[in-house]
């Protein structure tokens, strides 16, 4: 199958999808779709999405899917997995759900090495609610709640998800950061993350993504911000749990 065509596990009835033009979600979901196809696991997939723009993915795939609450996707998925270990679960959420309101679940799930695959889409903002500052908003970045640019003296430094879990998740788990600027590599990471779950371990992938609507950028500005500003602060690569990043 050409990687440019539609993955088999897509729910064709929900296409074209409802994300804004230029949004990175479609690319992250495409990477996930390709990984599901490659592993041929759609019949035992459960896809759970958070609240925020990620909720729009609720009927994206032709696999069992559900919307949960903001920040609570991970415990739902943990419950599903513990009750039916043969199911393959993905918890799909934004940076607010993953790193702010639901951070305790992320830390605890990683700590327990629950065999689930977590995808956090990092677009540096709360997008669905109108572009507020997120844990991932870069220093100096303008948002509705940091109109003068994010002041890290006041609000702390942008949160680095996978890096924060290095000392938490056990060595058998999988931690990585990919980007929609390189969908093929992102797909490989997600595939590894799913394989790690199939092996019985926790997997976490952050995907750097885009939000032209709230960033108020044109195509060039959007990709420039993703590749340069975000890329400079958030290093793409795999991280070995318990150690420093090895393939920056």
């Amino acid at each position: 199958m050409s990687e440019l065509s539609m993955p088999r596990c897509y729910n064709r009835e929900s296409k074209p999808h409802r994300f804004c033009p230029g949004c990175g979600h479609g690319l992250v979901l495409k990477a996930l779709g390709m990984a599901i196809d490659e592993l041929d696991i759609s019949s035992r997939m459960v896809f759970a999405c958070d609240i925020g723009c990620s909720l729009l993915a609720w009927n994206f795939f032709s696999v069992d899917s559900l919307q949960t609450h903001h920040g609570r996707t991970l415990p739902v998925v943990v419950g599903i997995k513990r009750a039916r270990p043969e199911l393959v679960t993905v918890a799909y959420m934004g940076d607010g759900g993953g790193y702010a309101i639901g951070l305790q679940h992320l830390v605890s799930t990683a700590l327990r090495n629950d065999p689930v695959t977590v995808i956090v889409v990092n677009n540096t903002t709360y997008a669905m609610t109108g572009g507020q500052m997120a844990p991932t908003t870069l220093e100096g970045q303008h948002t509705k709640t940091s109109p003068g640019g994010r002041d890290i003296e006041e609000t702390g430094a942008p949160f680095k998800g996978p890096e924060s879990l290095i000392g938490v998740a056990p060595p058998e788990s999988y931690l990585a950061r990919g980007t929609v600027a390189n969908v093929i590599r992102l797909k490989k990471m997600i595939r590894k993350g799913l394989e790690r779950q199939l092996r019985g371990d926790f997997a976490f992938i952050e995907a750097l993504s885009t939000c032209p609507t709230n960033w108020r950028t044109d195509a060039a500005g959007t990709w420039g911000f993703l590749e340069h500003e975000m890329g400079a602060y958030y290093q793409v690569g795999e991280m070995a749990a318990g150690r420093e990043p090895i393939t920056p």
Binding site: L66, T68, H69, R72, P75, V76, V77, V78, G79, I80, K81, R82, A83, R84, L87, Q104, H105, V107, S108
Partner: peptide, 25 residues
């Protein structure tokens, strides 16, 4: 099965997850 979760939110939502699969939880 038993799991001591990180808080009540997690306990409640994990129960929902188990229930979704048909488990009496």
């Amino acid at each position: 099965g038993f799991l001591q979760t990180e808080d009540e939110l997690s306990a409640g939502f994990a129960t929902l997850g188990a229930v979704l699969t048909g488990k009496i939880a």
